Simulated assay, not measured.
Amino acid sequence: MLYFKSMGTALVMGMTLLALAGCDQAEKSAQQVLDQAAKSAQQVIEQTNQAAQQALSDALGTDRREPEQDDTASETLDI
């Protein structure tokens, strides 16, 4: 009888480990899907922003340029 109990315990522990491994894999897969969705959403936002800027530029009839970078960060003052 003791033999069956130890075998049953080992079987239950093995099944638990398999279930946990499956859960871990499912979590990793879900994270990959979420990361890909976030990247796709970011691309859509950037494309929409570019299209909106182009439409505004076309509507105003001006050639809109990107704002120039401020180089004040590279200037230092000696004390």
Score class of each variant (00 low, 15 high):
5 K>G: 07
59 A>V: 02
11 L>Q: 09
32 Q>L: 11
49 N>P: 00
21 A>T: 10
10 A>H: 05
77 L>Q: 02
50 Q>V: 11
21 A>Y: 05
78 D>K: 11
44 V>L: 05
50 Q>M: 09
59 A>M: 08
3 Y>Q: 15
77 L>P: 00
14 G>R: 05
39 K>G: 00
18 L>C: 14
34 L>M: 13
3 Y>I: 15
39 K>V: 09
21 A>V: 12
28 K>C: 04
78 D>M: 06
24 D>F: 14
72 T>R: 11
21 A>W: 04
43 Q>H: 02
10 A>C: 08
79 I>P: 05
6 S>D: 13
11 L>N: 09
37 A>T: 07
67 P>C: 07
46 E>Q: 14
42 Q>F: 04
70 D>Y: 03
46 E>M: 10
58 D>R: 06
18 L>N: 13
77 L>Y: 09
5 K>Y: 12
64 R>A: 11
72 T>W: 07
64 R>I: 14
77 L>E: 07
45 I>R: 05
12 V>L: 14
59 A>K: 05
78 D>W: 00
71 D>N: 09
68 E>M: 04
71 D>G: 01
52 A>I: 13
16 T>K: 06
13 M>P: 00
3 Y>S: 15
15 M>L: 13
30 A>V: 10
37 A>M: 03
30 A>D: 10
12 V>Q: 10
19 A>W: 02
45 I>N: 03
51 A>V: 02
18 L>E: 10
68 E>H: 03
68 E>T: 06
28 K>E: 10
17 L>W: 08
33 V>Y: 04
30 A>N: 08
58 D>G: 02
38 A>Y: 10
37 A>F: 02
14 G>M: 08
53 Q>I: 12
54 Q>M: 03
62 T>K: 04
65 R>A: 09
51 A>I: 04
38 A>G: 02
27 E>A: 15
43 Q>I: 06
25 Q>L: 13
21 A>M: 12
40 S>H: 07
32 Q>G: 02
60 L>I: 03
24 D>L: 15
42 Q>T: 13
19 A>P: 00
62 T>I: 15
75 E>I: 10
75 E>D: 12
76 T>Y: 10
68 E>W: 01
53 Q>T: 11
58 D>K: 14
29 S>W: 12
76 T>G: 02
41 A>W: 01
63 D>Y: 05
56 L>F: 15
67 P>S: 12
69 Q>E: 06
76 T>S: 07
61 G>F: 04
75 E>P: 00
4 F>A: 15
12 V>S: 14
29 S>C: 13
49 N>F: 00
69 Q>V: 01
